[in-house]
Design a protein around this nucleic acid. Structure first.
Length: 877
RNA sequence: GCGGACGUGGCGAAACCGGUAGACGCACGAGACUUAAAAUCUUGCGCCCACAAGGCGUGCGGGUUCGAGUCCCGCCGUCCGCACCA
């Protein structure tokens, strides 16, 4: 047995089949044990899994298997984020139907995931593109609509005139469509939106309660929601604007600086600007120029502030007789605040840049602490720090906060044009979620447009609104719109001929509730079963990439609230614990003809210098930087090849070793070899130890020998540490502790074998038996196949996958004697071995009697002796 | 520009509350086994000086403390997020 190498190609499928046959990972909702829901972000079925999936799903699987061993009823499901653009692109390029392409990819990837030995409940598998899933999404859409959480509105979108479709912002590159290369136009289209802003305040406030989320993610969401408190102020026009407006309403977070106002600025698309532009060709040209500039990031960064004087004037609310010019300016955004501002150049850098360019006055109104009001001026840098108000009439002498209050108070009680001149206002950066997509491969929006009845939801009994199978993809635009018959229906309300909505939903909708569907994916009549969804949610541990820190997680938080509002769930927050794992990165290689893959090259190392050559031809290859695995740089490693070659356990072990899980991990051949060596080493050790560890546990002696006790202590200490590490998802630390135990056990086995025939130490045999039991059980979550195989050759009962986690004996974890470092003047000079419970006086006495201390003190009395119990002694000479 | 995170051996890292810096792994060196190689085992491995003793070391400079990788202040560098949000 000991001489045979462990063969993962044989063992892994065998144990996967055994687990399957025993339905070990099937989760029953009615199981009375405490529940634990661990979920990894489900994959998009792009075709093949990549190493990032391997890392993500390994981490989740360790948690699932560990929690199962700890006695929890674990829910660990898997599914497919199966709608989306790539399927449609494949349809256009390869003449294959998106459904066929998607389901084939799913089949491939399911097999790949299964080869990893993940403890998933495949009976709950869902694909978001199946009508059995999206029918429920349509039901919820209608419920949200009825609850006022869905509405339709004209929105500005990026329109690709060649592909005849709407593009997401990230699909617009330098103002052009990423695929067609056509100049993207801003178009106004009637679009469906989710009213996520109804929850702005709540989504922000609830972040504080998500204490098992990374601070980084919470901060990103906080910034994204972007709450700012300020005031809306209405400035009266000296003469009405061309569109008839008598006042210009602005939003400001600095009402305290109102006395420093020197101009007004409005967005190019502001209604007043449009009205002015209609009568002024020069202004219209300027507005058009601003619109063109809109999208390109590079232009935005360098764009100079520019404006156009409309000729309009407004009255300053507090300074009778003072009038301010109204500019149309390129740096004012229509969709933030009111699309208009007052400019206070002294205390806002943008306003200052603008004022300098157009020769507008700059009046400081906040005096920095300690500055002389007679001398203080603003040059090229606006002052936005703390200070005291001056040059500001009734505000003089107030702090900024007090002045904000005073201004708001005054404006609330002043009337202009029949309404208060100003109101306190909380503003959010967060905008409503535009979900309309002019695509085929998405969830159809279950609405009908009727000339007589308007927008009518499809009746629940008629759901799902299914995608037509016979769509064509050979011309640009929305295949649903092109379809000859699909969109023509009778109005559900009046029965007259009407038109189906041809927009489909953003795929982020699909992934905003899949975690809830997993709790009862068999329910055919409703999206969720309340008893199941309320019992399982929130997800105890959610694991995925940082790239979803904002959108997916924010949308899911919104969706859960909307589901609560419509009776589909009973809670607000879907994910109690969140962990964001790092990427898998790899060295890059550049050959004479561009990037080459790791598989194509050979690396040799001479005197510490690594050189790479092509395997084929031997051409020199330049070793480049370590970067995220990507097809374009060809620095990918295929999980199938790794699993086929080394086995799933090697891949899993590597993914958990070395790098902390939140950080990037560098995939290296040497590291994979190292991981595989450890797999073999465990197997060899178990084989060598079989005489001591197989079969039932030997009787325990009344007293363990010193060697046996040391072994037991080592095993139990590591066990306790590994528990702690897995609970904290510190897998790399758990791995290090397991290596430590393996090193200890290896020596112990060697010693035990050498001593064979000599006086038998019954205690040592029992200790070895126990220690190997612990070793195999603690590697099981990480390397489940190897552990199962060891379990079998050790002749233990049943499947390890269904066994309990071992119990750490606390008495063995604390030592009777401890080694205390002795510092002299803060530097370590000696060590003191002393009883754990030694009093401070005893420690002091023993320290002062220590040779090194006596020598250092040279007969003098120490100035001070600091004893930190159980930790350290410091003698100050 | 604003906000955040992080800088520890040749490399990935550990050090949980301010208490032995470098656990564990990779790479590398030496040795054993072998006809040989692979595998395996033993052993060494921060730097300086080395016989020992010692000195210096956690990006740089200061500070607090009996004691600082850890706390505070100021720099430098790397990475990430947001980006004209009024």
């Amino acid at each position: 047995m000991a001489s045979e190498r462990y063969n993962p190609r044989e063992a892994e499928p065998k144990w996967q089949a055994a687990w399957d046959a025993a339905e070990v990972f099937r989760t029953r909702n009615e199981d009375p044990r405490p529940r634990y829901y661990v979920l990894e972000m489900f994959p998009y079925p792009s075709g093949r899994i990549h190493m990032g999936h391997v890392r993500n799903y390994t981490m989740g699987d360790v948690v699932a298997r560990y929690k199962r061993a700890r006695g929890f009823n674990v829910l660990h499901p898997m599914g497919w984020d199966a709608f989306g653009l790539p399927a449609e692109n494949a349809a256009m390029q390869n003449k294959v139907h998106p459904a066929k392409w998607t389901y084939e990819n799913i089949a491939t990837m399911r097999a790949q995931l299964k080869s990893m030995g993940l403890s998933l409940d495949w009976a709950r598998e869902i694909a978001t593109c199946s009508p059995e899933y999206y029918r429920h999404q349509q039901k919820m859409f209608i419920d949200f609509f009825k609850a006022g959480l869905v509405y339709r509105r004209k929105s500005k979108v990026n329109w690709d005139p060649v592909d005849m479709t709407v593009l997401a912002n990230e699909q617009v590159v330098d103002g052009r469509g990423w695929r067609s290369g056509a100049l993207v136009e801003q178009r106004e289209l009637e679009q469906w939106n989710f009213r996520i802003t109804a929850y702005s305040e709540e989504l922000l406030a609830a972040l504080d309660g998500l204490d098992r989320w990374p601070d980084k993610v919470r901060l990103m969401q906080r910034n994204w929601i972007g709450k700012s408190e300020g005031a809306r102020v209405r400035f009266e026009f000296a003469a009405p604007a061309p569109n008839g407006d008598r006042t210009l309403e602005i939003f400001t977070t600095r009402p305290d600086t109102l006395f420093g106002a020197s101009f007004m600025a409005i967005a190019p698309d502001h209604p007043v600007a449009r009205a002015c532009g209609a009568a002024d060709p020069d202004l219209a040209a300027f507005q058009e120029k601003c619109r063109q500039m809109g999208t390109s990031v590079a232009v935005l960064e360098t764009a100079e502030k520019e404006g156009y004087d409309t000729g309009l004037r407004v009255k300053h609310p507090f300074l009778p007789g003072v009038e301010l010019k109204v500019f149309v300016a390129n740096f004012i955004l229509m969709d933030y605040g009111t699309g208009a501002i007052f400019g206070c150049p002294a205390h806002d850098q943008r306003d200052l840049d603008f004022a300098r360019k157009y020769g507008l006055s700059v009046t400081p109104v906040v005096l920095p602490p300690g500055a002389d009001p007679a001398v203080f001026t603003v040059g090229d840098i606006a002052y936005d720090g703390e200070g005291t108000l001056y040059n500001s009439g009734f505000l003089d002498g107030l702090s900024i906060e007090a002045a904000k209050d005073a201004v708001a108070g005054r404006l609330e009680t002043t009337e202009v044009d029949g309404a208060p001149q100003g109101t306190r206002q909380v503003n959010f950066r967060l905008r409503d979620w535009l979900i309309s997509r002019q695509r085929y491969w998405g969830c159809p929006i279950p609405m009908v447009h009727c000339e007589a009845c308007g927008v009518v939801p499809v009746p629940a009994a008629e759901l799902p609104v299914k995608l037509p199978d016979d769509a064509t993809f050979d011309r640009p635009g929305n295949p649903l719109d092109h379809h000859p018959t699909w969109k023509h229906v009778a109005c559900p309300s009046c029965g007259r001929s009407a038109r189906r909505e041809t927009d489909t939903m953003d795929t982020f909708v699909d992934s905003s509730w899949y975690f809830a569907r997993f709790t009862d994916p068999w329910n055919e009549t409703a999206p969720t079963t309340r008893s199941a969804v309320d019992a399982w949610l929130p997800v105890d541990q959610y694991i995925g990439g940082i790239e979803h820190a904002i959108l997916h997680l924010l949308y899911s938080r919104f969706f859960t609230r909307a589901m609560k509002a419509t009776g589909h769930a009973g809670l607000d927050e879907p994910f109690a614990g969140l962990f964001t794992q790092g990427m898998v990165v790899h060295e890059t290689y550049k050959g004479p003809e561009g990037w080459v893959s790791p598989a194509e090259i050979e690396i040799t190392e001479i005197d510490g210098k690594r050189t790479a050559r092509m395997k084929d031809g031997g051409a020199t290859v330049e070793i480049g930087g370590i970067e995220k695995m990507s097809k374009s740089k060809k620095n990918t490693v295929d999980p199938t090849e790794i699993i086929g070659g080394w086995g799933a356990d090697t891949a899993r072990w590597f993914m958990l070793s070395d790098s902390p899980p939140e950080r990037d991990v560098i995939w290296t051949e040497a590291g994979a070899e190292g991981a595989h060596r450890f797999v073999q080493r465990i197997w060899r050790m178990v084989g060598d130890a079989l005489p001591f560890v197989s079969g039932p546990a030997p009787a325990r002696p009344a007293e363990f020998s010193a060697a046996a006790t040391a072994l037991r202590k080592a095993a139990h200490k590591v066990l306790a540490a590994v528990e702690d590490d897995i609970e904290k998802l510190a897998f790399n630390r758990a791995v290090a502790r397991i290596y430590e135990l393996a090193n200890t056990l290896q020596k112990a086995v060697l010693d035990a074998r050498a001593a064979e025939g000599a006086a038998a130490d019954a205690g040592l045999a029992a200790a070895l038996h126990e220690a190997f039991d612990i070793l195999v059980r603690i590697i099981a979550p990480m390397m489940p196949h190897l552990a199962e195989e060891c379990w079998q050759v050790m002749e233990r009962d049943g499947l390890l996958a269904t066994s309990d986690w071992p119990v750490a004996d606390r008495a063995l974890i604390v030592d009777d004697t401890i080694v205390l470092p002795i510092q002299i003047n803060g530097k370590k000079r000696a060590e003191l071995t002393i009883g754990r419970d030694a009093s401070e006086a005893e420690v002091t006495a023993a320290t002062l009697a220590h040779e090194a201390v006596v020598k250092a003190l040279d007969g003098k009395a120490p100035r001070k002796v600091i004893v930190v119990p159980q930790r350290i002694v410091n003698v100050v000479a």
